[in-house]
Simulated assay, not measured.
Amino acid sequence: MRSGTLKILLAASVALNLFAAAAATTLLVTRDRVENHAEAQRRPRSAPLADVLADMDPEVGGRVRSALRASALAARPDFDEARRARREAVGLTNSADFDPAEVGALLEHSRQAEIRGRARLEADAVALLDTLELADRKAVSRILTRRGSRNGRDKAPETRAPS
Rank of each mutant, 00 (worst) to 15 (best):
M1G: 07
R2M: 07
G4Q: 07
K7C: 04
L9W: 01
L10M: 03
L10F: 03
A12S: 03
S13W: 05
S13Y: 02
A15F: 05
L16K: 00
L18R: 09
F19R: 07
A22E: 02
L27C: 08
L28C: 04
V29L: 08
V29H: 05
R31V: 07
R31K: 07
R31S: 03
D32C: 04
R33Q: 07
V34E: 10
E35C: 02
E35T: 04
E35R: 03
H37V: 12
A38H: 02
A38Q: 03
R42P: 00
P44R: 10
R45T: 00
A47W: 01
A50C: 01
D51G: 01
V52K: 05
E59Y: 07
G61F: 05
G62K: 06
R63S: 08
R63V: 00
V64R: 01
R65Q: 05
S71N: 10
S71L: 12
A74W: 13
A75F: 03
R76D: 15
D80P: 00
R84T: 07
R84D: 09
A85G: 02
R87D: 14
R87Q: 15
R87L: 12
V90S: 12
V90A: 12
V90T: 11
G91I: 15
L92T: 11
L92Y: 11
N94G: 11
S95Q: 12
D97L: 15
P100Y: 11
E102K: 05
E102T: 02
A105G: 09
E108V: 02
A125S: 15
A127N: 11
L128W: 04
T131L: 11
L132Y: 13
D136M: 03
D136E: 14
K138I: 03
A139N: 08
V140S: 05
V140H: 07
S141E: 04
S141R: 08
S141P: 10
R142H: 13
T145P: 06
R147G: 09
R150W: 09
R150M: 10
N151I: 09
N151A: 07
N151Y: 10
G152P: 10
D154S: 05
K155A: 05
E158I: 02
T159F: 11
T159I: 14
R160M: 02
P162A: 08
P162M: 02
